[in-house]
């Protein structure tokens, strides 16, 4: 951070140009801007804000189904006090947090390594990118079904492979024991989303100007110094972005446990989203399901703020420019 960023004048050049206009024109432009954005904003509000508010209202009620539709009975925070004192909810929260932290951390490290290699790659980068994107482009339900076959305890590929090369002697039930099931599921997630992280980071890497590295080389900086003094600081906003995306996705994980384990063995892989679905659409307890959903949203918003805060210095610097 100590090094002044020579990029800034160039980056902020475009953004600062409108500032030279008179306040009146700026205000009119802003009004026009709002007018143009309004239809899009209305749609966004309709599909995001409304369901969230509605969900919060539902979570404060006990819902009974009548022949005329839902009947709302106000219970205040009762649903929340029930879910927070429920051991299954607490376990689900614990599982979801651990799952998010572990997968996002590994994906970030692995994704960064891949991005660094790709950045240096001269020939065949396009091909490598295409290959890398395959896991990411598969619909999760389909890739999860694929992993289901790989992990299958009787005719699974993984057991056949490991027994074939002599690592295992008896087949392992990959999804049958809690710890192995959790690790297997994390692996499937990491396999799928590491490329996504790698590609976002690669874009960030390519925005770092080469002159910086040349200058550093002339000054005699070695590889690790170049990484920690140039690459990493300049990559921080991109890292923040990819971590944010991944935390949001991982925290709402539903499709993988839905296909692979249905939350089992026992409740070992029951994520908050799966629990919410179960309570809402299997037990038809709308109020408590909504409380699970709303609490999850609040927790992940808080987590997002933490992530942003951790990278705030860098983000703030950009805005100041």
């Amino acid at each position: 951070m100590g090094t002044p960023n020579p990029l800034e004048p160039e980056l902020t050049n475009h953004a600062s140009r409108p500032e030279k206009k008179s306040p009146g024109i700026r205000r009119r432009l802003a009004r026009q801007g709002w007018a143009f954005a309004l239809p899009a904003l209305t749609i966004i509000a309709a599909i995001t804000i409304f369901p969230i508010l509605y969900s919060i209202i539902v979570s404060l009620n006990h819902i009974t189904f009548t022949s005329q539709g839902y009947h709302f009975h106000w219970v205040g925070l009762h649903n929340y006090s029930v879910i927070f004192s429920n051991p299954l909810y607490r376990y689900s929260l614990f599982f979801t947090v651990i799952y998010t932290v572990v997968t996002v951390f590994i994906e970030l490290v692995a994704g960064l390594l891949i991005a660094l290699v790709l950045d240096k790659l001269i020939a065949g980068r396009g091909l490598m990118l295409a290959v890398l994107l395959l896991p990411w482009s598969l619909i999760t339900v389909i890739s999860a079904e694929m992993w289901n076959y790989i992990y299958n305890g009787v005719y699974g590929v993984l057991n056949a492979l490991l027994i074939g090369i002599g690592i295992l002697h008896t087949p392992v039930v990959w999804l049958g024991r809690p710890l192995i099931a959790i690790v297997s599921m994390m692996f499937a997630d990491i396999w799928k989303t590491t490329p996504f992280v790698a590609i976002i980071l690669l874009a960030g890497l390519q925005m770092i100007p080469h002159e910086l590295y040349e200058a550093a080389e002339i000054d005699g900086a070695n590889g690790s110094a170049r990484f920690w003094r140039i690459t990493f600081p300049l990559l921080r906003p991109t890292i923040a972005l990819s971590v944010l995306f991944r935390v949001l996705q991982a925290f709402g994980i539903f499709d993988l446990p839905f296909v692979l384990t249905q939350g089992g063995p026992g409740h070992a892989t029951e994520s908050l989203a799966l629990l919410g679905w179960q309570v809402m659409f299997q037990d038809l307890n709308m109020g408590r399901g909504a409380a699970i959903a709303a609490s999850t949203t609040l927790i992940v918003l808080f987590a997002s703020l933490l992530v942003l805060r951790a990278f705030r210095a860098q983000v703030g610097e950009e805005d100041l420019g």
Partner: peptide, 11 residues
């Protein structure tokens, strides 16, 4: 906004 829109499928 992203957080709100991507978190909970159940929502």
């Amino acid at each position: 906004l992203i957080a709100a829109s991507t978190t909970m499928p159940a929502l």
